[in-house]
């Protein structure tokens, strides 16, 4: 499934992905600036395959995918994946391909919007994630929206001669900062 449009602050919006977004995302995954904590910097699809992937993901009822738009343009994507509707648990992820925009709070805003939707509309009761520990931008954005670290997977990524550990995080509806609810949920 694709997620609905959710307007945020600072020019950030979550919106359903377009075919052009589906073609663009894998291209970003080939850049060294973006893949330090993402891998393996190879792709196995053509533009035609992107359309098929979009069709499949759009029809899949165990994941929700959004494009993260910044100033009206696609900057990356976020979502909830492998949703178990019986346990009401899912894995969240975020990817900003426009590395020229890092450090401006885009991930923080996208995660705030995503998690509000997860708790207020989807009715999940828990979400979890895995993030390379030095990828502070990612875990910090999630932490501000209620995630806490509940484990450390040692020596997960090997990059440029160094092993890097990974954070295991989880969040619940009650850990979301109520005073930071987006406008769509304020009456």
């Amino acid at each position: 499934m694709f997620g609905p449009r959710i307007a945020g602050e600072g020019g950030v919006e979550l919106r359903p992905p377009t075919l052009e977004d589906y073609r663009q995302n894998p291209r970003w995954m080939l850049l060294p600036e973006v893949t330090r904590f993402w891998g393996p910097r190879t792709i196995s699809e053509t533009d035609a395959d992107a359309e098929e992937r979009m069709r499949k993901e759009g029809a899949r009822d165990t994941s929700i995918v959004w494009t993260i738009a910044y100033a009206g343009e696609s900057a990356g994507f976020t979502g909830v994946f492998d949703i178990d509707w019986v346990r009401r648990d899912g894995e969240t992820g975020i990817f900003i391909g426009r590395h020229d925009l890092y450090g401006r709070g885009i991930a923080s805003e996208a995660v705030r919007l995503r998690m509000a939707y997860v708790w207020k509309e989807l009715g999940l009761r828990r979400t979890h994630n895995w993030i390379a520990l030095p990828n502070r931008g990612s875990w910090r954005a999630n932490q501000k929206a209620g995630y806490a670290q509940v484990g450390t997977y040692p020596r997960s990524f090997f990059r440029s001669g160094e092993w890097v550990d990974e954070w295991l995080g989880e969040a619940f509806p009650h850990t979301y900062p109520a005073d930071r609810l987006p406008d769509a949920w304020r009456r």
Partner: peptide, 10 residues
């Protein structure tokens, strides 16, 4: 053990 998810299974 390297992690513990809380209240995961019902």
């Amino acid at each position: 053990e390297f992690g513990r998810g809380h209240e995961v299974y019902y």
